[in-house]
């Protein structure tokens, strides 16, 4: 049995799931669940909804263009049975899925590196802004004064051991 893709969210439809809608001009729309079917009836655009594959690919959140996607494609040309070819494709399927997964993980990591920087900067900003929530302003002032004192002490020249010997 063929595993079709949902027209709306492009997830796989397993047998016994979802509903197919046939328009008057005989075009077929397959939906994986009632959520997708209901959104289709509301005439919503899957490219504008964040949870669909179409949006995620368009917004650059997932790997969109890659050679590993070209294996899984609907081909209308009937292929003559060939044992060697079948074995080769079975092997290829496993290898290509592994490669695809690695590439997707790499893509995710590179995308998250930017996000990590952004979150760190924003957290830093919020900490500087709302420091009074962490420590009371009075104690902060005290700390500042103490720091100033310490700086002063550090700035003063300290007599070395040789100098002290000379003085004696």
């Amino acid at each position: 049995m063929r595993l079709e893709k949902c027209w709306f969210c492009s997830s796989t439809i397993y047998p016994g799931h979802g509903i197919t809608f046939v328009r008057n001009d005989a075009t077929i729309f397959r939906f994986c669940r009632s959520k997708c079917h209901a959104n289709f009836k509301l005439k919503r655009n899957p490219r504008k909804l964040r949870w669909t594959k179409a949006y995620r690919k368009l917004a650059g959140k997932e790997l969109a263009q890659d050679t590993t996607f070209e294996l899984e494609r609907k081909r209308n040309r009937p292929e003559r049975y060939n044992r060697e070819l079948l074995c080769a494709t079975m092997k290829g399927m496993k290898a290509i899925t592994e490669i695809r997964k690695k590439r997707q993980d790499r893509f995710y990591d590179t995308r998250m590196q930017k996000a990590r920087k952004q979150t760190r900067e924003s957290e830093k900003k919020s900490l500087l802004k709302d420091i009074h929530l962490v420590k009371a302003p009075e104690s902060l002032l005290k700390d500042k004064q103490q720091d100033l004192l310490l700086e002063k002490v550090a700035a003063e020249p300290v007599a070395t051991v040789e100098q002290m010997d000379v003085q004696e």
Binding site: P15, G16, G18, T20, V22, N24
Partner: peptide
């Protein structure tokens, strides 16, 4: 030939038509 009411098959698939 076609109905707007859901057509259910024994394999569990459901079909709906426009008119």
């Amino acid at each position: 030939v076609t109905t707007t009411k859901k057509l259910k098959r024994k394999d569990g698939s459901q079909y709906r038509f426009d008119t």
